[in-house]
Design a protein around this nucleic acid. Structure first.
Lengths: 138, 138
DNA sequence: CGGAATCCGTATTGATACTG
DNA sequence: CAGTATCAATACGGATTCCG
């Protein structure tokens, strides 16, 4: 039995349907994204953020990508977007329950990265060294 | 206390260092990728795959992206690449312990997607409807 | 002033043909 | 079979512009 099948049995997930598989992969493709993960992390920590705050917290993101990513997240039901009709304008973003669930799921990936980044750095230098040796000798 | 701080305390993760944060984010940026996740899922299920097998299993990926993604994964120590000097050529890819750990971490995201894809579809149609209403009335 | 849409140069990605 | 080379398409990021 594959790990996947075992997991399905343990968790009582209904057997896989090809159409559902495609849909799940499409969703994975959408949320498995650097900026999405980063925004979810920030929103999880702060609870509620204005656009400018996200822009500052999500270092390196352009205004365009921030807007684009937030729109996609809103569309997928991961965040709510609340506009306050005040001057100056104020828009707040907050994770929905769905987004919070994804945040919990992502949490494991963050922990993995925090625990293993040294091993990855080591792997990278090993790889570079190996390639250099091959280039010189092979 | 933020969720993040609480998580750190519960899991005994050392306090965050800005330089480490950047590194962790860089790693997240690299592994939080559609193809990387898909390849890890496939390799977890099958244990060991040839290039062509991955190419067929990872539907929609181009040869170029497959090569590129596998190289990055090899470089980061997530997979091993074994070349058999036979004709026709045979190259096998397999997850390392590090890659298996990441697979476990990703598992939560897959389960989340499998459990919630209907809610996301619903959110998408709600969003479309809402936008259509705004366009017509607003 | 805060937030979103547009234009345009650059970097990544994808489809195809070709090689060992 | 397992890649590499090449060129077209697309996505990205920055500056600018527009809106309230």
């Amino acid at each position: 039995m594959t790990d996947d099948a075992l997991r399905r049995e343990l968790l009582d997930i209904p057997p896989t349907d090809p159409a559902v598989d495609r849909l799940v992969e499409e969703i994975i493709g959408r949320v498995a994204d650097k900026w999405t993960m980063l925004l979810i992390e920030i929103l999880t920590e702060r609870g509620c953020c204005r656009f400018g705050e996200l822009s500052r917290a999500c270092e390196g993101i352009s205004q365009k990508m921030l807007t684009q990513t937030l729109r996609a997240m809103e569309r997928d039901g991961l965040v709510t977007r609340t506009v306050y009709p005040v001057v100056p304008p104020k828009v707040e973003y907050r994770l929905t329950d769905l987004g919070l669930g994804l945040s919990k799921a992502f949490c494991g990936v963050w922990i993995w990265a925090e625990e293993n980044f040294r091993r990855i750095e080591q792997a990278r230098s090993d790889y570079a060294e190996r390639k250099a040796a091959e280039g010189g000798a092979g």
